[in-house]
């Protein structure tokens, strides 16, 4: 009883008020961006229209005209979706092999894969440009898809590995008794059982691909340029275009933020490589 009495005052009033305050404070910049996206460019910089203004959809309707938004969005969708699919295509069999048929080297292989993630991208910037231009792949979807897949492959394999480890080996062994071959095991047993884990891995990889802002900026000019490149190219609008810039930014991050809400838990696992439970 003492526990309840001791902390009651703070728990009833202080905690909710403070917590809501912090939550709203952190969300405020996003709210502000969305709000500004409904203002005209002129209203967006006038103090008297800070909160009260006539909302307009023009910024969204003119995104194609102002920024050629859909071309960049199309590139983002193509590269992020293809990279996610390719990552899983390579990652699921690899994680399957490591989780169900581990060898003595498995642990080292996993650690080594993780260490590739720690190579600073900038260190290999020029060789990548050199190679890409050499093979004639600079500024193409294929190049961006390959790079996005490779930088996310270690995280994907790690996440899948931790999910697959939870599946009882007996179930897979039972499949073997019934004479199911390896592909059958993956297709008929593993994928249905680990569907949730695979889906959340896919979601997280997709988010990372969408937000990537080093390779997508440095390895593209126009044909394969993604939304990161579009926004980066409009870094200093000199205040003239706050309205339209907010609209295009909202369109670029909105879907991802909403997707992100659904995979908070997986995020912890994916980013800490299962080390925090």
């Amino acid at each position: 009883m003492a526990i309840v009495a001791q902390s009651s005052k703070f728990s009833t009033y202080g905690r909710p008020i403070l917590a809501w305050g912090v939550g709203l404070l952190f969300f405020f910049p996003i709210f502000w961006m969305v709000l500004t996206s409904f203002k005209t460019d002129a209203d967006a910089v006038k103090p008297e229209h800070l909160l009260f203004f006539t909302p307009t959809l023009d910024n969204y309707l003119n995104m194609t005209e102002n920024y050629d938004y859909w071309r960049f969005a199309r590139n983002s969708v193509i590269t992020a979706v293809s990279a996610t699919v390719f990552t899983l295509f390579v990652g699921v069999p690899a994680a399957y092999a490591m989780a169900f048929n581990p060898s003595r080297a498995t642990k080292d292989v996993l650690m080594w894969m993780l260490s590739t993630k720690m190579l600073p991208a900038a260190a290999v910037l020029y060789p990548m440009i050199f190679l890409a231009k050499g093979i004639g792949l600079y500024d193409t979807h294929i190049l961006i898809i390959t790079v996005l897949s490779l930088i996310n492959l270690p995280i994907a394999i790690w996440m899948l590995f931790t999910y697959f480890k939870e599946i009882p080996k007996d179930i897979i062994e039972a499949g073997k008794m019934d004479g199911v071959n390896t592909w059958g095991e993956i297709k008929e047993i593993l994928i249905p059982l680990a569907w949730g884990g695979i889906a959340s891995t896919a979601l997280l990889v997709f988010i990372f691909c969408w937000n990537e802002a080093y390779w997508t900026v440095r390895l593209t000019t126009i044909d394969a340029a993604t939304l990161s490149k579009l926004i980066e190219g409009n870094r200093a609008p000199e205040g003239l275009f706050f309205g339209r810039l907010s609209a295009v930014s909202t369109a670029a991050v909105g879907p991802i933020v909403v997707l992100g809400w659904f995979c908070q838990k997986q995020l912890v696992q994916g980013l800490t490589f299962g080390a925090v439970k």
Binding site: W210, N211, L227, S249, V253, I256, V257, G260
Partner: peptide
């Protein structure tokens, strides 16, 4: 509150920077 708090993490870095430095 959890949803509000976690949102900034999913904003792409380019938008984050443009939003803060300008608006």
């Amino acid at each position: 509150v959890r949803v509000l708090l976690i949102s900034p993490f999913f904003v792409m870095p380019a938008v984050n920077a443009v939003l803060w430095i300008n608006m």
